[in-house]
Simulated assay, not measured.
Amino acid sequence: MLALDWGFFAIAAPAVVFAGISKSGFGSGAAFAASSILALVLEPGQALGIMLPLLMVMDVTSLRPWWGKWHGPSALFLALGAIPGVALGAALYSVADADLFRLLIGGISIGFVAWQAGRGMGWIKGAGRALPDWAGGLAGMVAGFTSFVSHAGGPPAAVYLLSKQLTKGQYQATTVIVFWMVNIFKVVPYAFLGIFTWDTLRADLALAPFAVLGALLGVRLHHLVPERQFFLLTYVLLTCTGAKLIWDALT
């Protein structure tokens, strides 16, 4: 049985608040850091099972302030593409062991940091023009898969959305509505695969207030905190947790 003690809350509560801030205020890209942190002290399946309902609480909390501000066509193609991606993730989960998922979560964490560093240094260029609709479907499929195995669908979606030259508000609103739908898509396979348990649901009830707090803070901090400082902290967290998860998986 999962012990909901002070040690658990000392790790889980800040991670959930951080995820809420990222999800509702900074494009969702770094929200999966909470899953990476929890996977350091829990089985990967438990970490994923705990985070999905909390991410859905954050979705509902942050939908209202961003409602109707998204770019409709981009959201549609990403969401439709995510459906086969979620199915692929479910198929892999049914045959993989915990160490493979530690490796995947750790690799995605490190890959996210490397991708962002490459963009910041100019090594990775954004698309010179808007990507076609089929690219949105492909990005959605990759986002659906990475979201299923580590709640890390933000980077693939960002590649497509950044090519659309959206405003900061449009970009944020589009990620909110897309990952609200993607998270709904994941509920049924998570339930059938046994990722949800009574332990994860007990943890969700205890952590739900922190999810709401993080989402409300994110909406406010979207206009107050420079993205550079926020993501710098995220990159440090993801590098450390990703490296530890890869080490644990391989050893």
Rank of each mutant, 00 (worst) to 15 (best):
V41I: 15
E43K: 04
L48H: 09
M51C: 13
L52C: 12
P53L: 10
L55G: 11
L55Y: 11
V57D: 04
V60L: 15
S62K: 08
S62T: 13
S62C: 13
R64G: 10
W66F: 10
G68E: 13
K69D: 08
K69S: 01
K69C: 01
H71K: 10
H71T: 08
P73D: 07
S74F: 01
S74Y: 03
A75F: 01
L78D: 08
G81R: 07
G81N: 12
A82C: 05
V86M: 12
A87W: 01
A87P: 00
L88N: 01
A91H: 00
V95Y: 06
A96M: 11
A96Q: 09
D99S: 13
L100K: 06
R102I: 02
L103K: 01
L104Y: 11
G106I: 00
G107F: 05
G107S: 14
S109H: 01
I110K: 00
G111Q: 01
F112K: 06
F112Q: 10
V113K: 01
A114D: 10
W115I: 14
W115D: 12
Q116K: 13
A117F: 08
R119G: 15
R119F: 14
G120E: 10
W123I: 04
W123C: 00
A127G: 03
A127S: 12
G128S: 13
R129A: 15
P132K: 12
W134I: 15
W134Q: 08
A135I: 13
G137N: 07
G137C: 08
G140L: 14
G140I: 15
M141T: 14
M141K: 02
V142N: 04
A143E: 13
F145W: 01
F145C: 00
T146D: 06
V149S: 04
V149R: 06
G153I: 10
P156F: 07
P156L: 06
A157W: 06
V159A: 07
V159H: 04
L161W: 02
S163N: 02
K164T: 09
Q165L: 07
